[in-house]
Design a protein around this nucleic acid. Structure first.
Lengths: 222, 222
DNA sequence: TTCATTTCTTAACATACATCAATGTAGGCT
DNA sequence: AGCCTACATTGATGTATGTTAAGAAATGAA
């Protein structure tokens, strides 16, 4: 049994408790989002309960679609467990992957969210996924309540810009092999979790090309 | 004579004035940046003088380099007149253009600016250019002083993310022709001002390929 | 286990784009 | 004016990547 799980059970035995307390406990103190706010965002303890009351959670199964192209995106998702993906589909139905979001990542279609325009993109789940869902209003409220949250939110935006820019630089300046090598360096964990044709789609090449690149690399190593 | 110019001269004749006042007048009330803050950012009149004291101006000649790869970028540039460009250079010396910034655009290497890491990119002037120069501290101060500025700053970041994302989508999902058509639709003014090999560089293709694409399009139209 | 489905690999061929080299064209400079 | 220099075009050729199709391997369901 996992230590945290054991600790919780112990607590439930020792402390007289109600259903709603255990529910609260379950959904907050143990929640990856709670831990993230506390340890990464450095939200002060006194602000945490208020923020946790403003969000809600959701579970989606594999392949479930959270946002369709044409819809207006009203949510930001925080992935507690599982994996989301943001992608477009062209006239021929081919998918082009803009972004992956594994555990402890935020994902949204910010263009649609912030500007209220219909999205050109889809969001779906690549695995069974547990989410925290909130909207732009939550961000604004949270930024008012917690200066630490405000700071972290700006950090997220700045970091996002940096990542997108580096990716553009790769796309216009490097061939398939370099892009792939960069991908596995940046996202070694993802490389194992997602099918190769999705990596190819993210890199802007076909699955067959990626297969050839990998063959080349395998031979070079010997 | 331009009406605004005439109005200023009139004022200088009627009002007893000092050199420093006319200097202030020159550098603020008429300044494109001042007008931008007032009309686009909607900074309240009472906040404008304070903000204008925190910035400084600079003129650079064509081909002058404002940021070298390897340097830490400490500035955000606002283009009052002229044209800047952000680009990388690969091992072979080939340039890859990340972004153009004509009049009334902000340009910076945000990754380096915000995170204090050495830049992978260069910034230079494609034309003789008048700039407003400020740093991240200015942004933070301005956001404290003026809520409108804070709002607009977030708008800029969100919009930047949207644009970068759309460009990535084009790069991984479209061929040279579509990318070019999209470029001239988005930036018809730039299309006239910059050499084609720079457009090609921005699109991730060679100048020769762009020339062929244009030939194709010219024939199709007939 | 077995079967079905998805993913990955491989090969033959097609195509878009790059490279190299030559020529043409237009703007600036003296 | 004439001469540079930078830019644009064109053609011949090379190469990386796309397409199509088939089979192999992995995955998941019954």
């Amino acid at each position: 049994m996992h230590p945290i799980q054991r600790k919780k059970n112990l607590l439930l035995l020792l402390v007289p408790t109600t259903f709603s307390f255990s529910l609260f406990f379950n959904q907050t103190m143990e929640s990856p989002f709670y831990i993230y706010l506390k340890d990464k965002v450095h939200v002060r303890p006194e602000h945490l309960p208020m923020l946790m009351q403003l969000i809600h959670k959701k579970s989606v199964s594999k392949n479930e679609i959270l946002l369709f192209s044409g819809q207006i995106c009203s949510s930001i998702f925080f992935v507690e467990k599982g994996l989301l993906r943001l992608y477009s589909a062209d006239e021929t139905g081919k998918e082009h992957i803009i972004q992956f979001a594994p555990e402890n990542w935020f994902l949204s279609e910010r263009g649609s969210l912030y500007f209220g325009t219909p999205s050109d993109f889809f969001i779906d789940a690549l695995e069974e996924t547990s989410l925290v869902v909130f909207d732009q209003q939550f961000i604004d409220r949270a930024a008012e309540i917690s200066p630490e949250f405000r700071t972290y939110n700006e950090y997220i935006l700045q970091n996002h810009i940096r990542e997108l820019q580096l990716r553009i630089n790769l796309l216009i300046g490097s061939n398939a092999q370099k892009r792939y090598l960069e991908f596995i360096k940046l996202y070694p964990d993802l490389t194992m979790r997602i099918p190769q044709w999705m990596i190819a789609s993210y890199l802007g090449i076909t699955a067959e090309s990626l297969s050839r690149v990998r063959k080349m690399l395998a031979h070079q190593k010997k």
